[in-house]
Amino acid sequence: MLFYFARRILAAIGVLLLISLFTYAIFFLLSPDPAVQICGKTCTPERIDQIRSQLGLDLPFWQQYWQFLSGIFTGRTYGEGAAAIQCAAPCLGFSFQTNEPVTDMITTRMPVSITVAVGAAVLWMLAGIGGGLLSAVKQGTGWDRGVMMTALAGISLPNYFVALLLQYVLVVQLRWLPFPQSVQFAEDPLLWFQSYLMPWLVLAFGYAAMYSRIVRTNVIDTLGQNFMRTARAKGLDAPLVLRRHALRPSLTPVVTLFGMDFAGLLGGALITETVFGLNGVGKLTADSIAKNDQPVIMGVTLLAAGLVVIANMLVDVAYTYLDPRVRVKSA
Protein backbone atom coordinates (compact mmCIF):
# COMPACT_ATOMS: atom_id res chain seq x y z
CA MET A 1 0.00 0.00 0.00
CA LEU A 2 2.80 2.38 0.97
CA PHE A 3 4.59 1.45 -2.22
CA TYR A 4 1.47 2.31 -4.16
CA PHE A 5 1.24 5.77 -2.61
CA ALA A 6 4.94 6.43 -3.19
CA ARG A 7 4.56 5.47 -6.82
CA ARG A 8 1.54 7.73 -7.20
CA ILE A 9 3.41 10.69 -5.69
CA LEU A 10 6.44 10.14 -7.91
CA ALA A 11 4.19 9.94 -10.96
CA ALA A 12 2.47 13.18 -9.95
CA ILE A 13 5.80 14.97 -9.60
CA GLY A 14 6.78 13.74 -13.04
CA VAL A 15 3.56 15.03 -14.56
CA LEU A 16 3.99 18.41 -12.88
CA LEU A 17 7.53 18.73 -14.25
CA LEU A 18 6.33 17.93 -17.75
CA ILE A 19 3.50 20.44 -17.48
CA SER A 20 5.89 23.16 -16.32
CA LEU A 21 8.25 22.34 -19.17
CA PHE A 22 5.54 22.51 -21.81
CA THR A 23 4.00 25.65 -20.38
CA TYR A 24 7.37 27.33 -20.25
CA ALA A 25 8.19 26.22 -23.78
CA ILE A 26 4.91 27.59 -25.12
CA PHE A 27 5.50 30.98 -23.52
CA PHE A 28 9.13 31.01 -24.55
CA LEU A 29 8.36 30.26 -28.16
CA LEU A 30 5.10 31.98 -28.86
CA SER A 31 4.82 35.12 -26.82
CA PRO A 32 6.08 38.54 -27.91
CA ASP A 33 9.28 39.68 -26.25
CA PRO A 34 8.42 40.75 -22.70
CA ALA A 35 11.39 43.10 -22.68
CA VAL A 36 9.79 45.16 -25.45
CA GLN A 37 6.59 45.43 -23.46
CA ILE A 38 8.36 46.39 -20.28
CA CYS A 39 10.46 48.94 -22.03
CA GLY A 40 7.48 50.98 -23.06
CA LYS A 41 7.28 53.70 -25.73
CA THR A 42 10.53 55.57 -25.19
CA CYS A 43 12.74 52.66 -25.83
CA THR A 44 16.20 52.14 -27.19
CA PRO A 45 17.72 48.87 -28.36
CA GLU A 46 20.32 49.19 -25.59
CA ARG A 47 17.57 49.50 -22.99
CA ILE A 48 15.85 46.39 -24.36
CA ASP A 49 19.12 44.44 -24.18
CA GLN A 50 19.58 45.63 -20.64
CA ILE A 51 16.12 44.43 -19.62
CA ARG A 52 16.63 41.17 -21.44
CA SER A 53 19.80 40.39 -19.54
CA GLN A 54 18.20 41.56 -16.31
CA LEU A 55 15.35 39.11 -16.78
CA GLY A 56 17.66 36.41 -18.04
CA LEU A 57 15.87 36.47 -21.37
CA ASP A 58 19.18 36.43 -23.25
CA LEU A 59 19.99 32.99 -21.91
CA PRO A 60 19.24 29.80 -23.86
CA PHE A 61 15.90 28.07 -23.24
CA TRP A 62 17.17 25.35 -20.92
CA GLN A 63 18.95 27.80 -18.68
CA GLN A 64 15.89 30.01 -18.49
CA TYR A 65 13.72 27.01 -17.66
CA TRP A 66 16.17 25.92 -15.02
CA GLN A 67 16.16 29.41 -13.46
CA PHE A 68 12.38 29.37 -13.42
CA LEU A 69 12.22 25.92 -11.92
CA SER A 70 14.84 26.51 -9.25
CA GLY A 71 13.14 29.82 -8.44
CA ILE A 72 10.08 27.87 -7.33
CA PHE A 73 12.13 26.09 -4.71
CA THR A 74 14.86 28.55 -3.75
CA GLY A 75 13.57 31.92 -4.88
CA ARG A 76 15.45 34.07 -7.36
CA THR A 77 16.80 37.55 -7.89
CA TYR A 78 16.12 39.53 -11.04
CA GLY A 79 18.95 41.89 -12.05
CA GLU A 80 21.88 42.97 -9.97
CA GLY A 81 22.90 45.65 -7.52
CA ALA A 82 20.51 48.33 -6.32
CA ALA A 83 17.98 47.63 -9.07
CA ALA A 84 17.78 43.95 -8.12
CA ILE A 85 14.34 42.54 -7.47
CA GLN A 86 13.94 39.79 -4.92
CA CYS A 87 11.42 37.06 -5.59
CA ALA A 88 11.18 34.77 -2.59
CA ALA A 89 10.51 31.05 -2.89
CA PRO A 90 8.16 29.73 -4.11
CA CYS A 91 8.81 32.15 -6.96
CA LEU A 92 6.52 31.60 -9.92
CA GLY A 93 7.95 34.59 -11.73
CA PHE A 94 7.67 38.33 -11.49
CA SER A 95 5.12 40.58 -13.15
CA PHE A 96 6.85 43.64 -14.52
CA GLN A 97 3.50 45.20 -15.31
CA THR A 98 2.32 45.29 -11.72
CA ASN A 99 5.78 45.03 -10.13
CA GLU A 100 4.70 42.19 -7.95
CA PRO A 101 5.89 38.60 -7.59
CA VAL A 102 3.38 36.27 -9.26
CA THR A 103 3.21 34.12 -6.15
CA ASP A 104 2.00 37.08 -4.09
CA MET A 105 -0.58 38.00 -6.71
CA ILE A 106 -1.96 34.49 -6.59
CA THR A 107 -1.91 34.02 -2.82
CA THR A 108 -3.76 37.27 -2.15
CA ARG A 109 -6.51 36.18 -4.54
CA MET A 110 -6.63 32.55 -3.54
CA PRO A 111 -8.99 33.00 -0.54
CA VAL A 112 -11.68 34.42 -2.84
CA SER A 113 -11.41 31.50 -5.24
CA ILE A 114 -11.42 29.03 -2.36
CA THR A 115 -14.56 30.63 -0.93
CA VAL A 116 -16.25 30.50 -4.33
CA ALA A 117 -15.23 26.89 -4.92
CA VAL A 118 -16.14 25.54 -1.49
CA GLY A 119 -19.54 27.24 -1.36
CA ALA A 120 -20.42 26.17 -4.88
CA ALA A 121 -19.21 22.61 -4.22
CA VAL A 122 -21.41 22.23 -1.15
CA LEU A 123 -24.43 23.44 -3.10
CA TRP A 124 -23.84 21.38 -6.19
CA MET A 125 -23.10 18.18 -4.31
CA LEU A 126 -26.32 18.56 -2.31
CA ALA A 127 -28.43 19.49 -5.32
CA GLY A 128 -26.73 17.13 -7.75
CA ILE A 129 -26.83 14.03 -5.56
CA GLY A 130 -30.26 14.85 -4.15
CA GLY A 131 -31.73 15.58 -7.56
CA GLY A 132 -30.14 12.54 -9.16
CA LEU A 133 -31.36 10.23 -6.41
CA LEU A 134 -34.88 11.61 -6.50
CA SER A 135 -34.95 11.31 -10.25
CA ALA A 136 -33.72 7.71 -10.21
CA VAL A 137 -35.98 6.49 -7.44
CA LYS A 138 -39.02 8.21 -8.97
CA GLN A 139 -37.98 7.23 -12.48
CA GLY A 140 -40.58 8.09 -15.11
CA THR A 141 -42.66 10.30 -12.83
CA GLY A 142 -43.16 14.05 -12.82
CA TRP A 143 -40.35 14.39 -10.28
CA ASP A 144 -37.94 12.70 -12.64
CA ARG A 145 -38.98 14.82 -15.60
CA GLY A 146 -38.84 18.01 -13.52
CA VAL A 147 -35.33 17.35 -12.27
CA MET A 148 -34.07 16.29 -15.69
CA MET A 149 -35.59 19.33 -17.41
CA THR A 150 -33.89 21.59 -14.88
CA ALA A 151 -30.65 19.71 -15.39
CA LEU A 152 -30.94 20.14 -19.14
CA ALA A 153 -31.31 23.88 -18.61
CA GLY A 154 -28.32 23.90 -16.28
CA ILE A 155 -26.16 22.14 -18.84
CA SER A 156 -27.32 24.15 -21.85
CA LEU A 157 -27.33 27.68 -20.46
CA PRO A 158 -23.87 29.25 -20.43
CA ASN A 159 -23.00 30.42 -16.95
CA TYR A 160 -22.32 34.04 -17.94
CA PHE A 161 -25.93 34.13 -19.12
CA VAL A 162 -27.24 32.59 -15.91
CA ALA A 163 -25.04 34.99 -13.95
CA LEU A 164 -26.40 38.07 -15.71
CA LEU A 165 -29.97 36.78 -15.55
CA LEU A 166 -29.69 36.07 -11.84
CA GLN A 167 -28.14 39.44 -11.19
CA TYR A 168 -30.86 41.17 -13.18
CA VAL A 169 -33.70 39.34 -11.43
CA LEU A 170 -32.41 39.18 -7.84
CA VAL A 171 -30.57 42.47 -7.63
CA VAL A 172 -32.13 44.84 -10.14
CA GLN A 173 -35.76 43.70 -10.32
CA LEU A 174 -36.62 42.03 -7.02
CA ARG A 175 -33.94 43.79 -4.98
CA TRP A 176 -33.58 40.72 -2.78
CA LEU A 177 -29.81 40.96 -2.82
CA PRO A 178 -27.48 43.95 -2.77
CA PHE A 179 -25.01 44.32 -5.59
CA PRO A 180 -22.07 41.97 -4.85
CA GLN A 181 -19.23 43.69 -3.03
CA SER A 182 -15.85 42.54 -1.95
CA VAL A 183 -16.09 42.37 1.82
CA GLN A 184 -14.37 40.15 4.32
CA PHE A 185 -16.45 37.75 6.34
CA ALA A 186 -15.36 39.40 9.59
CA GLU A 187 -16.45 42.86 8.44
CA ASP A 188 -20.05 42.07 7.55
CA PRO A 189 -21.03 38.40 7.53
CA LEU A 190 -24.45 39.03 5.99
CA LEU A 191 -23.17 41.16 3.14
CA TRP A 192 -20.35 38.67 2.65
CA PHE A 193 -22.86 35.86 2.32
CA GLN A 194 -25.11 37.86 0.02
CA SER A 195 -22.19 38.77 -2.18
CA TYR A 196 -21.04 35.20 -2.60
CA LEU A 197 -24.51 33.70 -2.91
CA MET A 198 -24.97 34.45 -6.60
CA PRO A 199 -21.56 33.16 -7.71
CA TRP A 200 -22.21 30.01 -5.69
CA LEU A 201 -25.63 29.54 -7.24
CA VAL A 202 -24.43 30.16 -10.79
CA LEU A 203 -21.53 27.72 -10.56
CA ALA A 204 -23.52 25.15 -8.61
CA PHE A 205 -26.34 25.19 -11.16
CA GLY A 206 -24.10 24.05 -13.99
CA TYR A 207 -22.29 21.41 -11.99
CA ALA A 208 -25.40 20.17 -10.18
CA ALA A 209 -27.07 19.70 -13.55
CA MET A 210 -24.27 17.44 -14.71
CA TYR A 211 -23.96 15.61 -11.41
CA SER A 212 -27.68 14.91 -11.10
CA ARG A 213 -27.66 13.28 -14.53
CA ILE A 214 -24.67 11.14 -13.66
CA VAL A 215 -26.04 10.19 -10.23
CA ARG A 216 -29.39 9.32 -11.80
CA THR A 217 -27.76 7.01 -14.34
CA ASN A 218 -25.57 5.40 -11.69
CA VAL A 219 -28.44 4.82 -9.28
CA ILE A 220 -30.71 3.36 -11.96
CA ASP A 221 -27.88 1.11 -13.02
CA THR A 222 -27.25 0.00 -9.44
CA LEU A 223 -30.95 -0.58 -8.74
CA GLY A 224 -30.95 -3.12 -11.56
CA GLN A 225 -28.02 -5.06 -10.09
CA ASN A 226 -28.54 -8.56 -8.79
CA PHE A 227 -27.25 -7.69 -5.33
CA MET A 228 -30.17 -5.29 -4.92
CA ARG A 229 -32.52 -8.22 -5.42
CA THR A 230 -30.51 -10.16 -2.83
CA ALA A 231 -30.84 -7.28 -0.37
CA ARG A 232 -34.61 -7.22 -0.80
CA ALA A 233 -34.78 -11.00 -0.59
CA LYS A 234 -33.15 -10.76 2.85
CA GLY A 235 -36.15 -8.80 4.04
CA LEU A 236 -34.44 -5.43 4.40
CA ASP A 237 -36.78 -2.47 4.13
CA ALA A 238 -36.67 -0.34 1.01
CA PRO A 239 -35.00 2.80 2.46
CA LEU A 240 -32.25 0.66 4.00
CA VAL A 241 -31.72 -1.20 0.73
CA LEU A 242 -31.36 2.13 -1.03
CA ARG A 243 -29.15 3.72 1.59
CA ARG A 244 -26.85 0.85 2.25
CA HIS A 245 -26.70 -1.03 -1.01
CA ALA A 246 -27.43 1.47 -3.78
CA LEU A 247 -25.78 4.65 -2.57
CA ARG A 248 -22.20 3.59 -2.23
CA PRO A 249 -21.82 1.89 -5.62
CA SER A 250 -23.63 4.84 -7.23
CA LEU A 251 -21.66 7.61 -5.59
CA THR A 252 -18.14 6.22 -5.67
CA PRO A 253 -17.60 7.18 -9.33
CA VAL A 254 -18.79 10.70 -8.51
CA VAL A 255 -15.73 11.13 -6.28
CA THR A 256 -13.45 11.09 -9.34
CA LEU A 257 -15.48 13.73 -11.03
CA PHE A 258 -15.71 15.88 -7.95
CA GLY A 259 -11.96 15.87 -7.40
CA MET A 260 -11.32 17.18 -10.91
CA ASP A 261 -14.09 19.76 -10.89
CA PHE A 262 -13.27 21.10 -7.46
CA ALA A 263 -9.58 21.42 -8.28
CA GLY A 264 -10.48 23.15 -11.54
CA LEU A 265 -12.56 25.68 -9.64
CA LEU A 266 -9.81 26.35 -7.10
CA GLY A 267 -7.69 27.36 -10.05
CA GLY A 268 -10.17 30.16 -10.65
CA ALA A 269 -13.72 30.48 -11.99
CA LEU A 270 -12.80 32.77 -14.86
CA ILE A 271 -16.22 33.80 -16.14
CA THR A 272 -18.14 33.84 -12.89
CA GLU A 273 -15.50 35.80 -11.01
CA THR A 274 -15.30 38.32 -13.83
CA VAL A 275 -19.08 38.78 -14.10
CA PHE A 276 -19.50 39.28 -10.38
CA GLY A 277 -16.35 41.35 -9.99
CA LEU A 278 -14.81 38.95 -7.52
CA ASN A 279 -11.10 39.43 -7.20
CA GLY A 280 -10.10 35.79 -7.32
CA VAL A 281 -7.61 33.77 -9.32
CA GLY A 282 -10.07 33.55 -12.21
CA LYS A 283 -10.30 37.30 -12.47
CA LEU A 284 -6.51 37.52 -12.22
CA THR A 285 -6.24 35.09 -15.12
CA ALA A 286 -8.70 37.05 -17.23
CA ASP A 287 -6.93 40.35 -16.44
CA SER A 288 -3.45 39.06 -17.15
CA ILE A 289 -4.58 37.54 -20.44
CA ALA A 290 -6.11 40.89 -21.40
CA LYS A 291 -2.85 42.67 -20.54
CA ASN A 292 -0.67 39.86 -21.88
CA ASP A 293 1.15 39.67 -18.57
CA GLN A 294 3.00 36.45 -19.36
CA PRO A 295 4.60 35.58 -16.01
CA VAL A 296 1.18 35.78 -14.39
CA ILE A 297 -0.53 33.72 -17.10
CA MET A 298 2.12 31.11 -16.68
CA GLY A 299 1.83 31.16 -12.93
CA VAL A 300 -1.93 30.59 -12.94
CA THR A 301 -1.63 27.94 -15.63
CA LEU A 302 0.86 26.03 -13.52
CA LEU A 303 -1.28 26.49 -10.43
CA ALA A 304 -4.37 25.12 -12.18
CA ALA A 305 -2.44 22.19 -13.61
CA GLY A 306 -0.84 21.48 -10.25
CA LEU A 307 -4.19 21.50 -8.47
CA VAL A 308 -5.68 19.05 -10.96
CA VAL A 309 -2.70 16.72 -10.68
CA ILE A 310 -2.86 16.81 -6.89
CA ALA A 311 -6.63 16.27 -6.91
CA ASN A 312 -6.22 13.36 -9.27
CA MET A 313 -3.75 11.79 -6.89
CA LEU A 314 -5.99 12.34 -3.88
CA VAL A 315 -8.91 10.79 -5.77
CA ASP A 316 -6.85 7.72 -6.58
CA VAL A 317 -5.88 7.37 -2.95
CA ALA A 318 -9.49 7.90 -1.82
CA TYR A 319 -10.59 5.24 -4.29
CA THR A 320 -8.48 2.62 -2.61
CA TYR A 321 -10.56 3.23 0.49
CA LEU A 322 -13.92 3.54 -1.23
CA ASP A 323 -13.78 0.57 -3.56
CA PRO A 324 -12.58 -2.67 -1.96
CA ARG A 325 -11.88 -4.16 -5.37
CA VAL A 326 -9.32 -1.45 -6.16
CA ARG A 327 -7.86 -1.69 -2.67
CA VAL A 328 -6.94 -5.33 -2.86
CA LYS A 329 -5.54 -5.20 -6.37
CA SER A 330 -3.25 -2.31 -5.56
CA ALA A 331 -1.98 -3.76 -2.32
Partner: peptide
Protein backbone atom coordinates in the same frame (compact mmCIF):
# COMPACT_ATOMS: atom_id res chain seq x y z
CA UNK B 1 -44.86 -5.16 1.26
CA UNK B 2 -44.21 -4.43 4.91
CA UNK B 3 -45.67 -7.77 5.94
CA UNK B 4 -43.84 -9.55 3.15
CA UNK B 5 -40.57 -8.16 4.45
CA UNK B 6 -40.95 -10.32 7.53
CA UNK B 7 -41.47 -13.36 5.35
CA UNK B 8 -38.50 -12.69 3.09
CA UNK B 9 -35.30 -14.08 4.42
CA UNK B 10 -36.90 -15.30 7.61
CA UNK B 11 -39.55 -17.73 6.30
CA UNK B 12 -38.57 -17.96 2.66
CA UNK B 13 -34.98 -17.43 1.57
CA UNK B 14 -33.48 -17.44 -1.86
CA UNK B 15 -30.23 -18.44 -3.51
CA UNK B 16 -29.64 -16.94 -6.93
CA UNK B 17 -27.90 -18.03 -10.08
CA UNK B 18 -24.86 -15.77 -10.25
CA UNK B 19 -23.27 -15.51 -6.82
CA UNK B 20 -20.77 -12.80 -7.76
CA UNK B 21 -23.31 -10.28 -8.96
CA UNK B 22 -25.73 -11.30 -6.21
CA UNK B 23 -23.32 -10.11 -3.54
CA UNK B 24 -22.64 -6.42 -3.05
CA UNK B 25 -18.98 -5.85 -4.03
CA UNK B 26 -18.62 -2.96 -1.58
Amino acid sequence: DREMRRVRGDKVAMVFQDPLSSLNPY
